[in-house]
Design a protein around this nucleic acid. Structure first.
Lengths: 161, 161
DNA sequence: GCTTTTATGCTGCAATGCAACAAAAATATT
DNA sequence: AATATTTTTGTTGCATTGCAGCATAAAAGC
């Protein structure tokens, strides 16, 4: 459970390494939790790991179709569900799209997504204090928070240049 | 621009009043901005104001169909777009649904939505400091935030009883 | 080996959302 | 007022997202 720094993926980072790490991490998680990272699940994860852009379910299908028999939508949705349940993939609600988690944060920690509207890349920041204070504000109204979605759209450092 | 308190709508509040206020406010806003609150736009807003639950576009259609000729989806989407552009309606991303703004906050202020997963009601809290600190965290990574989506799912005070 | 659980495949369809063009209504212009 | 222009609404059609329900295959447990 490495705690990476809260950064936006730079365009020149070693992405092969980054993706390989994520796969290794996924294997680790599944082994620990006695879950099965089947070929399809792995393939879906790899498709998402091919970039730091969230992919729609049908984009995932298209990517998989290049390598194997085109999977039915439901197949991909099921794999995505599995991956999300195990904290390996996030759903970006404001885009109806899915993002491989490059962060290795523990399941409990709350993350915020930074979505660059120019290049489409998404960074995660571990937003502990801020979401904590949001949750507190909610609790003060008697509301019992369970799950937070924080998605910030804007322009990433690289695209501002 | 009344600044209401950050609360979850109680089940026993005077909803007729609450909805009437919102309509009056909408008229005011449109007058100020030289925008036209046409019959359809008003009807869509009224449909959303019938509850504090976000409605899907097709739920809005169903509601309107009870009163007038069933509008085509695109008609409702256009009205929703107009209402959102003028800050009268919010889109709840995690639900693909739309919520009449009962808040009268100014356009700039950032709000977080509290979504009760039991009764489906949604409250708004003006989440200034917290989202501010989120935005700051984002900026620290070089990201220029523009628009924030904060949606917190949980259980409202009333439903915990 | 057989049963039970888990995962995948297949067919079909519901829900969401919008593009492109046509008609109508409101506004502006001379 | 008549015409031109802009804004809004209507119509048709379709793309995208998402999943239900049942059948089959593979893996795990006894």
């Amino acid at each position: 459970m490495t705690m990476t720094r809260p950064v936006f993926p730079t365009p020149d980072h070693d992405h092969g390494r980054c993706a390989a790490d994520a796969i290794a991490h996924a294997e680790q998680v599944c082994r620990n939790r006695a879950q099965k990272l089947t070929p399809i699940r792995r393939a879906v994860l790899e498709a998402l790991l091919s970039s730091h852009r969230p992919l729609g379910a049908y984009e995932v299908i298209d990517q998989l179709a290049a390598e194997r028999a085109r999977p039915a939508p439901i197949t991909v949705y099921r794999a995505l569900e599995f991956l999300m349940a195990n904290g390996l993939v996030h759903r970006i609600e404001s885009r109806n799209a899915y993002l491989a988690c490059a962060h290795h944060h523990d399941a409990a920690s709350m993350v915020a997504f930074l979505i660059c509207e120019r290049c489409g890349s998404v960074g995660e920041i571990v937003a502990g204090p801020a979401t904590q204070s949001l949750n507190d504000a909610a609790r003060r109204t008697g509301f019992a928070p369970k799950l937070s979605v924080v998605e910030i759209t804007g322009t990433c450092a690289h695209c501002q240049a």
